[in-house]
């Protein structure tokens, strides 16, 4: 049997490593939101270019209402059981993707690797 102290050390190291990784991940920056439903990109929005607040609905396993405003995006309403996606609130920087696991919806924000935009 391992000593309790050894277990504490192992757990403390694991916690520290994961905590540092989380902080690094959650402080990433980006401005291009990608709405992915069931593995398919259904909308790509340059949040920096948004001028007016608007919302749209996506239907997959269930229904989510996605709201967009200058620089940020959120799920404003959903019919999923846990509503964690709605509780997530506005996401602007990109560290934490908005996830609605029951409805298979993920909204990621990153700088993508888009090098140029033609219009």
């Amino acid at each position: 049997m391992m000593k309790t102290k050894t277990w504490i050390a192992i757990i403390a190291v694991l916690f520290a490593v994961c905590a540092v990784m989380s902080v690094l991940i959650f402080t990433r920056k980006g401005h291009v939101a990608k709405v992915v439903l069931d593995g398919r990109v259904i909308r790509t929005i340059d949040l920096d270019a948004v001028t007016e607040e608007y919302s749209f609905e996506v239907r997959g396993e269930g229904t989510n209402v996605i709201r967009v405003r200058p620089g940020a995006i959120c799920v404003s309403d959903a019919d999923c059981p846990d509503r964690i996606c709605v509780a997530h609130g506005w996401e602007s920087s990109g560290g934490a993707p908005v996830v609605c696991a029951p409805n298979k919806l993920v909204i990621t924000i990153s700088d993508e690797d888009i090098d140029g935009v033609t219009f």
Binding site: I11, L14, F15, V17, C18, A19, M21, S22, I25, F26, V36, D38, G39, R40, G95, A96, P97, V99, A101, K104, L105, V106, T108
Partner: peptide, 27 residues
Amino acid sequence: GQILSAAMVMKTTAVFIYIPFLVCSGI
């Protein structure tokens, strides 16, 4: 385990980002 299955069901690796956080909260 939840994140692994979520990645498979939602067909995206974007959710892997939450693994370190879930390990911390799990501890």
